[in-house]
Structure formats: structure tokens, C-alpha cells
Computed example of a mutant assay.
Amino acid sequence: MMTGDRKQEFYDALLERNTEYEGFFFVGVKSTGVFCRPTCPARKPKFENCEFYYTAEEALLASFRPCKRCSPLSHPNQVSELVQTLVQAVEENPEKKWREKDFRELAVDESTARRQFKKRFGMTFVQYARARRMGLAMKEIRSGKPMIDAQLTTGYESSSGFRDAFLRIMGEAPSSVQEDHILKASWLDTRVGPMVAIADETQLFLLEFVDRRGLEKEIEVLRSKTRSAIIPGKTSPIELIERELDLYFKGELFKFNTPVRLLGTPFQMMVWDKLKKIPAGETRSYTDIACEIGKPTAVRAVARANGANQLALVIPCHRVILSDGSTGGYAGGSIRKKWLLDLESKSNYQVNE
């Protein structure tokens, strides 16, 4: 049962169009019969005309129909048709070097493409296409083909141009890259915001919310520690974690089976091991964790290790709260942390052993 305080919190977020609440609740408007996401641009209803729901399914079952303005049944970060069109075009001809006329042929504005890709992937469309071409170059190099073949296959007439582009995107010179030095990164949409997953062919190295503070630095540290190039793409661990995340957010799974690679100090590894053992629906304090690892005075060090976790949800650092019972901070946002704990504490959710 939703409390009055929670309803007021959601109503305030609705009035402010607070993007931090995207995916956390939906509002049914009794005067119109529609339900909306928190950031809907439509005129705001009176509090007494609002019914609040944690899921779109609950709103639908309460006979509300989805709002046509904010499309509450789609991800708030759903890929636009323009992005879909260009991604498909790249996949159909990944070796292609894009020029102005190519955008005109697709009736796409080049500057719009640049903005949308920058917002979506953190890189312009040209950078995206170039990275995809470089991914093909890696396949050529790993197959043992001469460097010149990889260079020409990806459309670089100059060997120095190929090397410079490779260094800029991959972080290593072509001749030094081995198969186990390639990581792939993929954008994953979830109901509480997009995440980025980075993995090789066998293990997941990073899973973070895209809006996490310091994400770019995290990725650079990962690149440095593994001495790897990171390129767009999917691997088996990324496909598996995507399926498991879908089940998690449906309340059907709370123990992840995706194989992971942990990169940390012995102390961090000890803390992360304790975090993995916190059951869904339960919490521990930083002091609890410090005592469990036999270092009761290392509370601050535990907090730092908790914050250094690069596998959100898989290593459930969101289940660590303050000693006074308050939720405390979370790199993915305190509102998101509170929502995750609420999800896991509901009685109808059970841990999958």
C-alpha cells in the first residue's frame, strides 16, 4: 500500500517533471483516464485527481490508457527512428566512410544525427561509424591477415591515417593488440534508466548506469588496468546480463549468473564478496560489513570499496545503508537506490537460488 508521504513525493516530482523519477512511478489521471510518466509535458492535474502506480501494468489494470504525449509504455531513452535508421545503415555497409551526400540520400540532417548520437552513445555518428569499421579491422587482424588488408578493408588509404584512427579509438597500436585485449561496450535500456555493459567474450567487466558520477573515469581505469581497446558491440555475457536485467526489473530474479571479472585490491575483493552474500530484500550497514570481514574499524575503507564497485546490481552495493537506517548515498542516485530497495523488499519477490 502506497503511503500518503510517498504519493506527495511523487506528485511533487510530477509538478517538477523531475527526470530522476523516470521509471520509478506512473500517474493515472482520473479526470482524463490516461496514465503518464513523471516527465510528461501535459498540463499537470490536481493532486486529488491523481492515482500513483509503481508499474505501467498496475496503471493499465486500473483501466487507465497510455498517454499519447509521453508514451509511458516505451523506455524514456528509446532509440529514435533516425538513430535506428543510421545504425541499420552502418550494419548493412560497415566499411563505408560517410560523407554529406550519404546523409542526403537517407533524407537525414547531418547535424541532427550528430546531436542524437552524441546524446545516445556519447559519440557522434561519424565516430560511431568509424568505431564500427575499426571493429572489423580487429577481426581482420585477429584472423592473421596482413595489416594492409585490415587497413584497406576499413577504408583507410593511408597507413598513418589508419594507425592514428586506431590509436584514437582503440587506445593501442594495431600491431600490439591481441584477441584477449578487446572489450565490447553496449547500451542497455532498463525501466529505471540506461546502463552500459562492457565485456569480453567470456566475462562481464563493467555494468553501470549511464548517469553514474565519474563513469568516464571508470571506463578509462578499466581500459588502463586491462590494457584493452573498448569498441561498440555485444558479446555473450552482455546478451546474458541483458536478459537477466529484464527478469530482475520484473521481480523474477535477484541472483545474477552472468560470469564476471572483478578487478580490485584484496581488500575490495573481500568487501565485494560480502556484498554478494546480502540477500535481496535485506540490507547491511557499512559497520556490519566491516565487522563481517574482521576489520571493525575500517568502516570508511568499506565505504570506499563499496563505491569502487563497477558491477551495479550484480554486486549489490545498493543494499548497504547507513547505521541509522537511512539509505545513504549511491553513485547511481539516491532516488534510484531507494527504488531498488523497495523493489527487492516487496513480499511477492523471491530470490532465485
Rank of each mutant, 00 (worst) to 15 (best):
G251Q: 08
F256G: 07
G264C: 05
K217I: 10
F162H: 11
R212Y: 05
Q151N: 11
S160A: 09
Q178Y: 03
K250E: 10
P194W: 00
I219G: 03
A197P: 07
F205E: 02
E252C: 10
V221N: 05
E239C: 05
R243F: 11
E252P: 00
V260S: 05
R223C: 06
T153P: 00
A197G: 11
A173T: 09
D180P: 10
M138I: 04
R213N: 00
S228K: 08
M170Y: 00
D211Y: 09
E208I: 01
T226W: 03
D164C: 06
T226C: 11
P237W: 14
L206G: 05
V221A: 09
F162V: 09
R261Q: 08
E172C: 14
A173Y: 03
L222Q: 11
D211H: 12
E220H: 14
I230A: 04
L263C: 06
A131T: 13
L207K: 04
R163W: 01
K255C: 06
F209Q: 07
E208C: 12
K250L: 11
F209E: 06
E208Q: 11
K145R: 10
A173D: 07
M170E: 04
T258H: 08
E179I: 10
L152R: 12
H181S: 14
T190V: 04
E172H: 14
L215H: 03
G135R: 03
E201H: 10
G214Y: 12
S236E: 15
G251H: 13
I219D: 01
L253M: 15
V210R: 13
K145N: 07
L188W: 00
S158G: 10
Q203V: 06
V210G: 07
F166Y: 15
L188N: 02
D200G: 09
Q203D: 06
G214H: 14
L204N: 01
S186G: 00
M195F: 07
M134C: 13
A199D: 11
E244S: 08
V196E: 00
I230R: 01
S143F: 04
D200R: 13
K145M: 10
A165C: 04
T265L: 06
S160E: 12
T190G: 04
I238V: 15
R132E: 12
R212V: 06
H181M: 15
L247Q: 15
F256R: 07
T226H: 07
